[in-house]
Write a protein that binds this DNA or RNA. Structure first.
Length: 221
DNA sequence: ATCCCGAGGG
DNA sequence: CCCTCTGGAT
């Protein structure tokens, strides 16, 4: 990672650049939303927990069979981790995730009537659910604004010189200063798509990047 | 800071 | 072979 210096910008200048970035994201990814397959908030929560350090493709390959066997929290709460493992083994980190999902389902039944709580603190008390997963679920399932920062957002925020902060929470808080609240959830999904297909971790395709004009790091990778 | 972990890409 | 993938818990 050869780091170019980020330009010194006022908040006003940065917001103007963010506005241009948002414009181009809206043109390039007009209906960006989660690519995790799900029918209910519960299934989205499970899929998002499974997506930690895994590709959404591998998660989507596993969840149809998983959801057919365990369609809701009540069904999953009756399972043992050993019974769940075969469904998710190919995703990786499967022992931890199987254990977490069963306990998570049991807690949903015990504390929330089997439903997904619309509250970040309550979500973060569930095993396997941290700040990023809770923010994603609130946004995608309930439309509650928030910019969840995952590996893609962290990388793009740095390359775009939108945030040099280190923790996901701080990067997210900073990004939320630059984009309008009603577009936060869109920005999250659009930047993930852009990070997955264009501004990739290893060899970013700057020549094909619609954000290049607004990116101080263009061509330096 | 380290562990969990399989699968696909370069 | 090494790196990365919508992280979280210890």
């Amino acid at each position: 990672m050869a780091r170019p210096e980020c330009p010194k910008e006022s908040l006003k200048t940065k917001r103007a650049r963010a506005a241009r970035i948002l414009e181009r994201l809206e043109a390039a990814y007009p209906n960006a939303r989660t690519e995790l397959r799900h029918e209910t908030p519960f299934q989205l929560l499970v899929a998002t927990v499974l997506s930690a350090q895994a590709t959404d493709k591998s998660v989507n390959a596993a969840t149809p069979a998983l959801f057919a066997r365990y369609p809701d929290a009540f069904a999953l709460a009756q399972a043992t981790p050993e019974e769940v493992e075969p469904y998710i083994r190919r995703i990786g980190l499967y022992r931890t995730k199987a254990k977490n999902l069963v306990r998570l389902a049991q807690m949903l039944v015990e504390r929330h009537g089997g439903e997904v709580p619309r509250d970040k603190q309550a979500l973060m008390e569930l095993p396997g659910v941290g700040w990023k997963t809770a923010t994603v679920v609130l946004g995608a399932a309930f439309g509650i604004p928030g910019i969840a920062v995952d590996t893609h957002l962290a990388r793009l925020a740095k390359r775009l010189c939108l945030s040099q902060a280190r923790t996901p929470e701080r990067i997210g808080a900073e990004l939320e200063q630059y984009f309008p609240r009603e577009r936060w959830v869109f920005v999250h999904h659009a930047l993930i798509l852009h990070g997955r297909y264009v501004c990739t971790a290893r060899r970013p395709r700057c020549e094909a990047c619609v954000l290049a004009e607004a990116c101080p790091s263009r061509g330096t990778w």
